[in-house]
Design a protein around this nucleic acid. Sequence first.
DNA 1: TACATTAATCGTATTATTACAATTAAGTAA
DNA 2: TTACTTAATTGTAATAATACGATTAATGTA
Lengths: 109, 109
Amino acid sequence: MGLSKTEIFTDQENEIAVLARAIGHPARVAILQHLFKIDACVCGDLVNEIGLAQATISQHLKELKKVGLIKGSVEGTSVCYCIDSEKWAKMKAIMFDFLEQDISSKTCC
Amino acid sequence: MGLSKTEIFTDQENEIAVLARAIGHPARVAILQHLFKIDACVCGDLVNEIGLAQATISQHLKELKKVGLIKGSVEGTSVCYCIDSEKWAKMKAIMFDFLEQDISSKTCC
DNA sequence: TACATTAATCGTATTATTACAATTAAGTAA
DNA sequence: TTACTTAATTGTAATAATACGATTAATGTA
């Protein structure tokens, strides 16, 4: 009915999906890339960097904050954002674990 | 307007987002996990394995096929699915490249 | 041929997502 | 205080995604 049935899946399956979903939009990937490129906090220039409206960027930042991938701290009139390295490491481990799987037998398709 | 503005992002950003989106649903993660567990083709028992309607599973399989992560081959009355190991390796490389980034300076937030 | 099996597709309802203009809230500067 | 700056929030519109019943298409079997 348009609503994901999260209850029928394992915690691991849901966790992978939630994290993947978070980076499942080019704007959010671009935000994260920019935060890595700058290698420090970014104070508000994301709207200029990425060609989307301020409200839209704010919405994407909210999504990234929701899963904990970024942190924001008020710095005067502006807000500074940066990657939450601990959460990022956690996601990396989860995704690596999932992605490093491979098929040993080539007896199919 | 509800439509992602893919044209304002780089190919890399879009590619990461598309792949992440594909595994951004627990049902699709579960399907892939099952294909890895079986380590061979799966002929139709996905509907029994995962508690979703046949039409819904078929829809998710279509999504996975669209990005090339799985292949399907007709086998009598049923259809056999398996991971496309080449595409999987390609995704792995792309995602690893993105995820292995880290912040060197801790001078923020 | 007629019947059964399997999976894709169609139709539809519901919820989620994306985007932006306008407004609000909070801090800064005059 | 008033004006300015910045970012979150609100409201709204449009598109996408999720789920399932019903149907269709294709194949195998009696």
